[in-house]
Design a protein around this nucleic acid. Structure first.
Lengths: 230, 230
DNA sequence: CCAAAAGTGTTTCAGTTACACCCATGC
DNA sequence: GCATGGGTGTAACTGAAACACTTTTGG
């Protein structure tokens, strides 16, 4: 706060834009929409909205997400603010980026139709409007850091998943192949998943064990520090 | 952006607040002011200001900092946005926090007088107004991460410094004692400082070599990754 | 010659990486 | 009985942590 009082300060439109990540068996994806109004109508864009006077940025982002996907209680994290004066040629706005992680498989149905929303593989994203390319790039970097540092990757997987699925997820996020044996032993040493009795038999005859993130166990072993950098 | 056009969107006052860190031989400090207007006039506060229509957040933060300290070209990083609806009882505002690193010794003079600015040791900061306590706490966490991950700690030191000063800095940031020998060999293995011929004789008879951050060398050795976590 | 701070190496331990074979099952 | 994917262990290496003595020099 400066030394002025508030009466004469400029007021601006504040937006939120959501980088919505999903994971689909093998590819990391991002959900984009075709922008419905000018400027740049029809071009691909992150889903966004405007902050209302009576809500927090987080609420605005949740609202936007719910609007697009029908989902609430989604993992979401605030990223940076973008404030170039001419970032939006139509009007002076600043925008705060948010990143959301959703599990495509369990929520596939509802979201595809509205706003011409569409999933794009992270390695074949079209050019986006305004400064959204930059937002996406930064969000990716943050995702890499966050998932290797805290147990948020599970948000991208179904409740129950196989080791291989988990490994594929991390491979997709980190953009490199990982060694199966090393991956498994690292995961196990972290003591954050529990192996269920059930098996997934869709991909093999033998079937592979299903695992579940174990929140309680994670908290208990927090001391040892979460580190999934490879 | 939502499906509305811009005309009917709410506009808000947008603020920036600066967490200004300094390092004074042995203690990590933060620069606070006594707030000059209501609400909470006279209480300790981060230095802040309001975003103007024709500037970026970064420019606003630089302006605020220059205003307080007379300094420009200061290392500064954007942190998060704070947007609780009632965070400022006087008016709906959101605030974007910035963190600045300045070298107290080289800039001691100019800043002390204005706005009753005062340096506080990080371990004896008074209670701050609004959500500034939270901002400071988050800024500290970020500082720990950033300084162990990128060579920004040098911003807090004079151009030329001794190994011991550098070690004290990291000890202050990390909040723990470090082993001298391990510290030195880690720093040397990073190849980011160069030893000068000069010595600092203020603190001993033998004198200790002065070092300087070596940007070029840092870039060259970037591949090996910067990691000063202990 | 001694007090005070600077400078310097080695050993141990833990964690990461690289690497290949056996197992269970359905067909 | 064989093809397919699932599951598991060990050896070598690399980096981190623990640890103490010698050097310099002003007084």
């Amino acid at each position: 706060m400066g030394i002025n009082n508030y009466k004469n300060e400029d007021k601006l439109i504040v937006a939120v834009d959501c980088i919505i990540f999903g994971f689909d068996k093998e590819k990391l994806k991002v959900l984009l929409i075709q922008r419905a109004f000018e400027p740049e109508k029809g071009k691909w864009s992150l889903m966004g909205g405007f902050l209302k006077k009576n809500e927090t940025l987080n609420e605005a982002a949740q609202r936007v997400l719910k609007n697009l996907t029908g989902l609430s209680d989604i993992y979401m994290e605030q990223l940076e603010a973008y404030s170039e004066v001419d970032r939006d040629p139509a009007e002076r706005t600043i925008s705060i980026a948010f990143s959301a992680l959703i599990n495509i498989e369990e929520h596939d149905k509802e979201l595809q139709q509205q706003y011409s929303a569409q999933w794009f593989s992270i390695d074949s994203v079209p050019h986006l409007i305004l400064d959204h390319d930059l937002m996406l790039e930064r969000a990716m970097r943050r995702l890499r850091y966050k998932t290797t540092t805290q147990p948020v990757g599970f948000e991208l997987l179904p409740e129950k998943f196989t080791m291989l699925q988990l490994q594929r997820l991390y491979e997709a996020i980190l953009g490199k192949k990982l060694d199966k044996r090393n991956f498994v032993s690292k995961i196990n040493s972290l003591k954050i998943v529990k192996r269920l009795e059930e098996k997934d038999r869709t991909s093999s005859k033998k079937g592979s064990f299903l695992y579940q993130f174990d929140e309680a166990r994670y908290r208990k072993n927090l001391v040892s520090g979460f580190d999934l950098r490879f």
